[in-house]
């Protein structure tokens, strides 16, 4: 499915002494099997934007279309939309409430009107996707470790079979190992289940590795909407709005400023960067030709 934003504005509390323009003239589209990274510093409007994607917030003006239907038109079933556009909030483990893990994951599918058996099947499937063993199914979600809780919470959304999965800072507060686990889990879901992903983060590194496309937000506006390499090439503009391009991209651009030419300054991952540098050092012309071939 495809979500399209058409000149969406969102103003919080228009009557207050200082109304907050959370979103200003946002037009974009997400979905269709893509892996989209959404970055911006705290307060840039990322969370507000994603809450418009599944109809939790209503735009003050502008329209959100899901497969060309206005999601705020009369009689549009927003509950069904929320199943198709799964949203995992920040610190999702804080929403766990049931007496055991399985029941908590069943909450979503049960709300959609699925039978107990179907819901349990969906829940078990989702739990195995996120790597929770069967032994934990009957435990209280509150007895799990932090990383496990988060995975159970993500399973709670996955069990509804979303076509687009939005994750708001899914790695916040986790140690590096759990971070890695969650990120590779997301990338696996994208590749094996063909779910479109919107990954919200303020860490460029996280987003850079997986995203096909990056949206950069600042002050309620979408500043850039480009492939990662093109976004990171603007590392100075990013720094100006408090974002840091990945180390690899910074290193390459510094090397190029220092006079080492002949590589693609837009490389993103550490491995690619190392390759670029080695190639540039050995045969600059060869790399230049390669780049032209690739672009």
């Amino acid at each position: 499915m495809l979500l399209r934003f058409d000149h969406v504005n969102c103003i919080y509390d228009p009557d207050a002494s200082e109304p907050v323009h959370a979103l200003t003239d946002v037009s974009l589209s997400v979905g269709g099997g893509e892996f989209v990274g959404l970055i911006g510093h705290t307060g840039s409007g990322k969370s507000t934007l994603v809450q418009h994607m599944n109809g939790l917030l209503r735009p003050t003006s502008g329209t959100v279309f899901a497969d060309d239907t206005d999601i705020w038109s009369d009689r549009y079933d927003r509950k069904a939309l929320r199943a198709r556009v799964g949203l995992v909030f920040q610190y999702p483990e804080h929403q766990l409430f049931e007496t055991d893990v399985l029941a908590d994951v069943c909450f979503g599918p049960r709300n959609l009107g699925r039978s107990r058996e179907d819901a349990e099947r969906d829940a078990k499937e989702a739990l195995s996707m996120v790597g929770i063993e069967e032994a934990l199914f009957s435990q209280s979600p509150f007895d799990l470790s932090g990383g496990q809780k988060r995975r159970v919470a993500i399973a709670g959304v996955l069990a509804m079979h979303p076509e687009i999965l939005i994750l708001d800072e899914p790695t916040a507060g986790l140690d590096p190992r759990r971070r890695e686990e969650i990120l590779s889990l997301i990338s696996e879901l994208h590749e094996t289940q063909h779910i479109s992903i919107v990954l919200v983060s303020h860490s460029m590194e996280d987003v850079a590795r997986y995203a096909d496309r990056i949206l950069v937000m600042d002050n309620g506006k979408v500043l850039y909407d480009d492939p990662p390499a093109a976004v990171f090439a603007r590392h100075r503009e990013l720094a100006a709005i408090g974002l840091r391009a990945p180390e690899a991209a910074l290193l390459l651009s510094e090397l190029s400023e220092a006079g080492l030419s002949g590589f693609d300054t837009y490389a993103v991952s550490a491995e690619d960067t190392a390759k670029e540098i080695l190639q540039a050092m050995h045969s600059p012309q060869g790399v230049a030709a390669d780049r032209e071939g690739a672009v």
């Binding site: 809450q51 599944n54 939790l56 509950k79 929320r82 199943a83 799964g86 949203l87 995992v88 909030f89 999702p92 804080h94 929403q95 409430f97 909450f107 979503g108 709300n111 959609l112 709670g156 959304v157 509804m160």
Partner: peptide, 27 residues
Amino acid sequence: KIMKAQMARGADFESGNIIKRAKNLIP
């Protein structure tokens, strides 16, 4: 926040009779 998170999982806080609504508040 929690309300929205549960609504994202299909929870409904606005319809149903009073007993159902009270039950819906548990999550």
